[in-house]
Amino acid sequence: MFDAPVETWYLWVGLAIASTAAVGLAVALPRAPPPDAAGAAETVDAVSASAHPTTGVHPLSADAVRIGPYRIWLRDDGRSGHAALAYGPVTPVRRDTALWDVLRGTPPEEAFSTPAEFRRVGAEARDRTPEWRSPDELTVRRVTWEGVDVTLVG
């Protein structure tokens, strides 16, 4: 009555395979959530939606950031997160450029000779393919100069 049936070994093999699969799945799951791209996007949107020139800073806890005209991506230890920007397009800014100087507080009339040049350089920056960069914080500045209205992000 308490003897195991002959088919029991199939049960044990199946249980061992299922247990191994469950352990493998648990090990493969990420240990932490992806970086908070939504928080960075909210900062960009808050500055972009402002009715007047504004500057905002958002600290980043990610290893790398990629900024596009309508989207932002954050990456950290193989995990990545992304968020769409509600108020785009924004202008991604690279270091050591005239746009970088404007992002950091230089008035656009000191960095560019004309508003048309400012508009052209901004359009070229938006047309570039987004690249991964390693910043500690995200700086956003909305600038208006003689009809040229841009939101710089770097």
Results as ranks from 00 to 15, higher is better:
Ala62Val: 01
Ser48Pro: 00
Ser48Cys: 02
Ala46Phe: 05
Gly68Ala: 12
Leu74Val: 02
Ala64Ile: 03
Ala40Gly: 01
Val102Ile: 14
Pro89Ala: 01
Pro135Asn: 09
Arg94Trp: 07
Pro59Tyr: 08
Trp12Pro: 03
Gly24Glu: 11
Trp100Ile: 07
Ala51Met: 13
Asp136Val: 10
Trp100Tyr: 13
Gly88Met: 01
Thr54Ser: 10
Thr91Asp: 03
Ala26His: 10
Arg104Thr: 08
Val6Gly: 04
Val57Cys: 11
Ala22Cys: 12
Val6Cys: 06
Gly56Ile: 11
Arg142Tyr: 05
Tyr10Glu: 12
Ile17Asn: 04
Val140Leu: 03
Gly105Met: 13
Thr144Lys: 05
Ala32Arg: 12
Gly39Leu: 02
Ala40Asp: 02
Ala40Arg: 00
Arg71Cys: 07
Ala98Glu: 04
Thr106Ala: 15
Gly88Leu: 01
Asp76Leu: 08
Thr139Asn: 05
Glu110Gln: 14
Ala26Ile: 10
Arg141Pro: 00
Val143Gln: 02
Ala98Ile: 03
Ala86His: 07
Ala4Phe: 05
Ala46Tyr: 01
Leu99Asn: 01
Asp63Met: 07
Thr54Lys: 06
Ala123Met: 13
Pro69Glu: 08
Tyr87Cys: 08
Leu99Gly: 05
Asp45Leu: 04
Pro34Ile: 06
Thr144Gln: 11
Val44Ile: 15
Glu42Pro: 06
Leu29Ile: 06
Leu60Phe: 07
Trp9Leu: 11
Leu138Gln: 00
Ala49Thr: 05
Ala26Met: 12
Val121Ile: 15
Ala84Asp: 11
Ala116Asn: 13
Arg79Ala: 14
Ala64Gln: 12
Pro30Leu: 12
Ala125Val: 13
Ala16Ile: 07
Arg79Asn: 10
Asp36Leu: 05
Arg120Ile: 12
Ala46Trp: 01
Asp76Ser: 11
Leu74Pro: 00
Trp12Val: 15
Arg75Ser: 14
Thr43Ala: 15
Leu15Ile: 15
Ser80Phe: 02
Leu15Glu: 11
Arg120Ala: 15
Trp132Ser: 10
Leu99Cys: 07
Arg128Leu: 13
His82Ser: 14
Ala37Ser: 03
Arg94Tyr: 04
Glu146Trp: 09
Arg79Tyr: 10
Arg141Met: 04
Leu15Cys: 13
Ala123Thr: 14
Ala51Trp: 05
Val150Tyr: 01
Val150Gln: 13
Arg79Glu: 10
Phe2Gly: 13
Thr139Glu: 13
Leu85Ala: 06
Val153Phe: 10
Ala83Glu: 03
Thr91Ile: 11
Ile67Val: 15
Gly14Ala: 14
His58Asp: 10
Glu124Arg: 13
His82Tyr: 05
Ala84Ile: 03
Arg119Met: 07
Pro107His: 15
Gly147Ser: 06
Ala41Asp: 05
Ala84Thr: 08
Arg95Leu: 07
